[in-house]
Design a binder for these strands. Structure first.
Lengths: 169, 169
DNA sequence: GAAAAGTTTGCAACATTATAACATTTCCGA
DNA sequence: TCGGAAATGTTATAATGTTGCAAACTTTTC
């Protein structure tokens, strides 16, 4: 899948969303699963924000569309998207974000900025490796890794230096 | 603080709880904060299980005590215990567990068994180090790390081999 | 040792996040 | 075009977490 810009850097986000949707269609076709209109719209809504979106935020936006949606609609779409590696759930935020490493087999590692709320997904083989070694040392059979790092992104660090308070994009 | 047995291994858990409470009293005295009866009881309830306990589980047990408790009582006690490093919240489970590394400055790493539900807290400097390096590479100022690993503990792996299904202690 | 100030708890209501259960519709292959 | 599987709609409810204010208790200060 195509590379994408860091959320910290200015970029044409429309393109970024369009690309994500195109990738998603390809992936679903390859996997022979159905990216239905609801699922696609949910994915789009999530991608339109670099900040994680709560299930009820998605629900509200679907309602704005005129879609007569209830919670299960959203949760089912999110489950589907997660299972197909198109979005990640951030456990520490109860929120969802578009996966920027679709296709690759990866252990998501998320840098969550407490200032602006943006989240950057990383793949750090050295971290995954160290985790694997540590788990093996305990004879623990690793299945799923949740790694979420809260802190300040570069931009919010400098804003804080200037104003004494983190920014809010 | 004193070393404690792995949850996977048989041990005298009463002693283990007593020790945790003794340690907690010392820590609170040193830090000049108040380990009130409610807070102490909540800590005890959490320690009595090696499995993470939900806030409402704690609440139910307080009610069994005859304590006339409401959710804020429990959440406030849990906040206090967390702030003083006596318990950890496991975000992926919405549950709490006693900290086995009180006193040490550490990045908790949790091995969560999907079979028996036990959780082992580890400190792995190689993992913390790799995370720190990865965050620095993005100029990200790290504040708090959530690292939770789901899988199977050694015991549940062997049970699964024998029976085809994970055990439930 | 009494009043003031700060901390902790009680309590009621409410907000947010997530799921269950079952009916209905849509899709797709035979 | 029919029949089964997948997806969605709908209603209700469960599970988790918070706000706001008043009362009780502790510590400090005079």
């Amino acid at each position: 899948m195509s590379a994408r810009a860091l959320p910290y850097r200015p970029h044409n986000h429309d393109t970024c969303v369009t690309q994500a949707l195109t990738d998603a269609r390809t992936i679903c076709q390859d996997r022979n699963v159905r990216l239905t209109p609801t699922r696609e719209r949910v994915l789009e809504l999530i991608w339109q924000s670099h900040k994680p979106l709560g299930a009820y935020d998605v629900l509200a936006q679907l309602s704005d569309d005129g879609h007569n949606a209830a919670p299960p609609t959203v949760y089912r779409a999110l489950d589907f998207l997660q299972q197909n590696g198109l979005v990640h759930r951030i456990a520490s935020l109860n929120a969802f974000i578009g996966c920027t490493h679709t296709g690759e087999h990866h252990t998501g590692m998320f840098l969550i900025c407490q200032g602006c709320g943006n989240v950057l997904e990383l793949t750090a083989p050295s971290v995954s490796g160290a985790i694997k070694v540590a788990a093996e040392a305990e004879s623990f059979a690793l299945d799923d890794v949740t790694l979420e790092i809260a802190g300040l992104c570069p931009r919010c660090q400098s804003e804080q230096d200037e104003t004494g308070a983190p920014g809010n994009e």
